[in-house]
Design a protein around this nucleic acid. Structure first.
Length: 444
RNA sequence: GUGGCUGUAGCUCAAUUGGUUAGAGCGCCAGACUGUGGAUCUGGAGGUCGGGGGUUCGAGUCCCCUCAGCCACCCCA
């Protein structure tokens, strides 16, 4: 070999080893189950879209982060940076066949060419669920419930879903005569939690040319603290006579009431009038979800209502609402919190290999166990047993199945529980039902 | 995209003021122990000191560039 190529991966792109991938797949399975329990159905869309489909939808910033290039036919194409914009295109293209409302989930990778950090990558998987084609607040309420169920199903106890409504913000800005500069004001406001009031006020003065009085008014809204009820009461005064603002407040009132009535503990759902979200397409309810133990990692599940996004591609009015679970960010958090299992194998049992001439026996035993749902890993070569047991141990197998010449001759086998460190004898009969039951029971 | 910090074996880290053939622990492979795992001992594999260039008699060590990681800004999952 003249020149060996150095194996490496691009910045922000990663390989996933078995242990990590098992955790990812388990998380995906959980998300899928929760989505399905609410009736969301799966879809998929291409990684590449015509560039014009993607640009100008999220924000100026997302346009800059877009991976784009000319394909072999000279077409300008881009890699999707989220799953919501492709969904809008998808709905516009297929709503005749689908009918409304459309409830779909979509678990797939997205790409953003931005700088990397802990829990921030250039290729990452989002787990989106959305309801398109209804303006009903029920869809917003269910979105909150799904987020809640999802985090609970993943094993989280301490998390906070922060809720706001763009209409409240827009109402206030309208009331203050800042409707024109809404984007700039909201962008500055979004930084309040991190930066504090001083820098935010300065940014508003600079980018939105807001007066001191206007700024103070906006900041007052964001600083409102308290329970759901009192926050709304105070916000009501600040938005004044604004029609939009009052609608937003009413929506939040109904949403808060319904979600709590559905059994979500009040402390998990917080009204936070300062969250605005950087994406331009949101029009109503907005959600962000933070882990109480790791607030610094950012939101692990965000979303909101976007009533006009599909109209970019279709004359139909197709309002939508949904949210996106950040799989990779969540996994980074779970790893930090020690919530990930250390297993590196999906198999329940390692079948020890004693000698080449008994291969057919091993294959038959494995086949019978698999037929009953047991995942069996047959060691490929007759190595020393201590090596094989060490292999099983290191990878986190619960069981090793020992069926050497002695056992085969006697018509039974040893099931070795590597966790409890003891063996039990089982008959090697036609079905191996007793053995399979023992393995599957211990696994559950 | 901007700024700061970091970069030695798979992992965690050593290596006097620049000075011969770059070390340790853990892990991996093998043996002691040819049918019973997290122990012990012995041996082995694995590094172009992230990569490239420069200064120097001599660079892991100093300088520049580049790549990657972390942090902040920005934005976001």
């Amino acid at each position: 070999m003249s020149q060996r190529i150095k194996p490496r991966t691009l910045k922000g792109f990663r390989d996933y080893l078995p242990q990590a991938m098992l955790a990812r797949e388990q998380l995906i399975d959980t998300a899928r189950e929760v989505y399905r329990s609410y009736g969301f159905a799966p879809i998929d869309t291409p990684a590449l879209e015509y560039l014009e489909i993607l640009t100008g939808k999220g924000s100026e910033e997302t346009d800059k982060q877009l991976y784009k290039f000319q394909d072999h036919g000279g077409r300008w194409v881009g890699m999707r940076f989220d799953l919501t914009v492709p969904l809008a295109r998808f709905v516009a293209q297929h709503y005749q066949q689908l009918g409304a409302p459309i409830k779909r989930y979509h678990i797939a990778p997205v790409w953003r060419g931005e700088n990397t950090q802990r829990g921030r990558y250039r290729e990452f998987v989002q787990c989106d669920f959305d309801t398109v084609g209804t303006e009903s607040l029920t869809a917003d309420i269910e979105t909150a419930l799904v987020i809640h169920d999802l985090l609970r199903a993943l094993g989280f106890q301490q998390f906070t879903i922060r809720v706001n409504n763009r209409r409240v913000l827009n109402g206030l800005l309208e009331h203050l005569g800042l409707a024109e500069q809404a984007t700039a004001v909201l962008r500055a406001l979004d930084k309040l939690a991190k930066a504090g009031p001083q820098p935010v006020a300065e940014e508003m003065a600079r980018t939105a040319r807001a007066s001191q009085e206007q700024i103070q008014h906006v900041l007052r809204l964001a600083e409102i603290q308290g329970d759901w009820h009192s926050v709304l009461a105070q916000a009501e005064q600040l938005v004044g006579a604004s029609q939009v603002g009052r609608q937003g407040i009413e929506e939040l009132r109904r949403l808060g009431q319904a979600v709590q009535a559905a059994g979500v503990p009040p402390q998990r759902l917080q009204l936070d009038l300062s969250i605005a979200r950087g994406l331009d397409y949101y029009t109503g309810t907005i959600f962000e979800t933070f882990l109480d133990q790791l607030p610094g990692i950012g939101s692990v599940c965000s979303g909101g209502r976007y009533d006009n996004l599909v109209e970019v591609y279709s004359p139909q009015h197709l309002p939508g609402v949904g949210a996106s679970l950040g799989l990779d960010r969540l996994l980074a958090a779970m790893e930090e919190l020690g919530m990930l299992p250390g297993r590196a194998t999906p198999a329940h049992v390692l079948l020890v290999n004693f000698q080449e001439q008994d291969l057919e026996h091993y294959l038959a035993i494995a086949a019978r166990l698999r037929a009953q749902g047991v995942r069996v890993d047959l060691y490929p070569e007759p190595k020393r047993m201590d090596k094989q047991l060490k292999y099983a141990d290191r990878r986190g197998f619960r069981f090793a199945l020992i069926a050497g010449p002695d056992e085969l001759a006697a018509g039974h086998c040893q099931l070795k529980d590597l966790q409890q460190r003891r063996s039990t004898e089982y008959p090697l009969d036609e079905t191996l039902q007793e053995l399979a039951q023992a393995i599957l029971t211990a696994d559950a």
